[in-house]
């Protein structure tokens, strides 16, 4: 049996497998960047990874903080700008994009703007950034979910999934036929969308995760695939790649922040001790 893994690591590994070789891929902030690097290293060597800051065919050296990170700017192939990164998506040259989730509803519509009232927010989230346009025009979208919530109604509708389900997305005439979310990947399992109703259902569950622990996060009666499978354990090679490339992802958000803050304090204390 392969070595023990964390659910954050498994999330990144499962996300990476959504990338096929030779595809053009737009990566969003966070897990997708690490997943993209993993895919490029192990599964999809000819994929073209790009980010909306206009860097195309990147080879990230280590896990990235943002969409223009210096560690993604060494040895890329095409330096275009943000405007063209989106118009190339609009014209249909992007196969798959990856987006993080704040709130998501059963048809894969997203809110990454605000929780509560728009003008007087309970939580002001980052906003659309590139999400709404990428989700509109990428041939397919993969949603990644590390801290977000499932809701019946979004507080703010930022990015279009399957709208009201069924053929409602295609019927608007605003989007490429067949586009929309292909999967939602959380730290508990993989959700896909019914081809007819476009409602999200549970397709795979991670090893060691109970169905009840998934259902309790979801306010509607979640449909479960009749052939629900357990996600295969990651291989040592996959786990080793993540730990080397993105150790803070392996640590998980809470532990990483705790360790980082302690280390900063130690450095500052050492220094002030020296000065005294």
């Amino acid at each position: 049996m392969s070595k023990p893994f964390t659910l954050d690591e498994l999330l990144a590994i499962v996300v990476a497998k959504e990338i096929n070789d030779y595809e053009n891929v737009v990566l969003g902030v966070g897990v997708p960047m690490t997943a993209g690097a993993l895919a490029k290293a192990l599964f999809a060597p000819h994929a073209t990874l790009m980010m909306e800051s206009g860097i195309v065919d990147i080879r990230p050296l280590l896990s990235l903080n943002n969409i223009a990170d210096a560690h993604s700017c060494r040895g890329f192939s095409y330096a275009t700008d943000l405007f063209s990164a989106f118009t190339m998506t609009y014209r249909g040259f992007v196969d798959v994009c990856f987006l993080g989730v704040g709130q998501v509803d059963k048809y894969g519509n997203l809110n990454t703007t605000v929780i509560g009232d728009y003008e007087k927010p309970d939580l002001r989230l980052p906003g659309s950034g590139g999400a709404a346009d990428f989700m509109s025009y990428s041939k397919r979208t993969v949603l990644t979910m590390r801290g977000g919530t499932f809701v019946n109604k979004l507080d703010y509708f930022t990015s279009p999934g399957y709208l009201e389900g069924g053929d409602s997305r295609d019927k608007t005439g605003l989007f490429p036929k067949g586009s929309g979310p292909a999967a939602l990947i959380s730290t508990k399992g993989v959700f896909r969308f019914d081809p007819m109703t476009k409602e999200m259902y549970l397709s795979q569950i991670y090893p060691g995760v109970k169905l009840e622990s998934i259902k309790k996060d979801i306010p509607w009666d979640l449909k479960v695939a009749s052939d629900l499978s357990v996600t295969p354990r990651p291989t040592d090679e996959e786990i080793d790649f993540i730990r080397d490339f993105a150790p803070e992802l392996s640590a998980g958000r809470e532990l990483a922040v705790e360790l980082r803050n302690a280390y900063i304090k130690k450095k500052a204390d050492l220094r002030s001790g020296k000065n005294a």
């Binding site: 989106f86 703007t113 709404a132 989700m135 509109s136 509708f157 608007t172 605003l174």
Partner: peptide, 13 residues
């Protein structure tokens, strides 16, 4: 600009 956002609150709000 890209018309997809017309179905979202970015356009409506």
């Amino acid at each position: 600009v890209l018309e997809g956002v017309m179905v979202t609150d970015l356009f409506r709000k």
